[in-house]
């Protein structure tokens, strides 16, 4: 998979990035190490020490915020990637400029840490939000297959307690403000008529997907157009065809009665770490058939946002 070098990938939840222990993530087949420096700023570098290629994520974060390789103890500054210290050469203060590791761009907003492989691309602005729940799931599906499954049958990938996703759509996949948008009819779980005999559906699930990263906003609404539940799902292509999914979710308007109570309670969203292969194989591609074309059309027609022009 040829990855978009200019995209901002939500590779971690804020609370996963600490000064205690470096975190290893991937963007495609690029291993990335994340940590938080002494000023609390999230840093990202290639997870490969330029000395003898050991993963930097096996090292540690020093009190001054540098990351230190666990093998021979070389220390690097996260902002520039430059080598700062070699244990047996502490008197040496400066190293030639080639003595550096690859540092990547990092931005942290709305509880997610996003990394861009191209350090010259300005970070996007993301609206701050309150989130009640969060999680991480690693699924052995490629990024594209993950999104195709999301379009064709979201119940392959996650569940919302008390909610049944039907196969009927209110709106097929289309473009809206540069996003891939669709809306699916849902029912309350439990006893009800099979979806194909139902005249009115009480709920819909609206999804808005970024054409580049696949980052998707989920919105569950009832028939009075109240937002009941909101989530952000960030699938990132990772090593060996795995998709790493970070997610955050929050409650919306209060739905009355038992059904509303079921939806509130403890976290109602479960993002699966594995897919049912039998169900996946027999899921007919429908929405996804057009998804790829639409995605490419959006990206071709896309005007680069002000921040992205720098990299072009």
């Amino acid at each position: 998979m040829s990855l978009n070098q200019d995209a901002w990938w939500a590779v971690a939840r804020s609370e996963e990035v600490t000064s205690e222990k470096p975190l290893s993530v991937d963007i495609g087949d690029q291993p990335v190490v994340l940590w938080r420096d002494n000023q609390g700023i999230a840093r990202a570098m290639e997870d490969r020490c330029p000395h003898r290629r050991a993963p930097l994520s096996l090292g540690c974060v020093r009190d001054n915020g540098w990351i230190q390789c666990g093998y021979h103890g070389w220390s690097f500054d996260g902002e520039t990637g430059r080598l700062k210290e070699i244990p047996n050469m502490k008197d040496q203060q400066r190293f030639p400029p080639v003595y550096k590791a690859n540092a990547f761009g990092v931005t942290e907003q709305a509880g997610l840490v996003r990394v861009c492989l191209n350090p010259n691309v300005a970070a996007p602005l993301v609206a701050a939000r309150r989130y009640d729940y969060c999680g991480t799931a690693n699924v052995s599906l490629t990024h594209r297959e993950y999104l195709n499954a999301l379009y064709d049958d979201p119940s392959l990938l996650f569940s919302i307690r008390g909610v049944h996703f039907t196969s009927y759509l209110m709106a097929e996949l289309h473009e809206e403000d540069g996003k891939l948008v669709m809306e699916r009819s849902c029912q309350w779980a439990g006893m009800h008529w099979p979806a194909h005999f139902v005249a009115e559906f009480p709920l819909t699930l609206l999804t808005k997907t970024d054409p580049v990263t696949g980052e998707t906003e989920l919105l569950l609404r009832d028939d009075e157009f109240r937002s009941l539940f909101h989530a952000v799902l960030a699938p990132v292509p990772s090593a060996r065809g795995v998709t790493a999914v970070r997610w955050r979710a929050s409650q919306g308007a209060r739905y009355p009665g038992l059904r509303g109570a079921l939806l509130r309670g403890i976290n109602p969203l479960t993002v699966f770490s594995s897919v049912n292969g039998t169900k996946l194989r027999t899921t007919k591609p429908s929405v996804s058939m057009n998804g790829e074309d639409l995605r490419e059309a959006i990206m071709e027609g896309a005007q680069p946002s002000p921040g992205q022009t720098a990299a072009a």
């Binding site: 003898r52 050991a54 093998y71 080598l83 070699i86 080639v98």
Partner: peptide, 24 residues
């Protein structure tokens, strides 16, 4: 082993990227 195990596959293919060396 904690270091050489992950290191080894990264030397299986030739690459243009030079290792950095110190006087040691």
């Amino acid at each position: 082993s904690y270091m050489t195990s992950p290191q080894s596959p990264r030397y299986m293919r030739d690459t243009d990227r030079k290792d950095l060396h110190s006087k040691f």
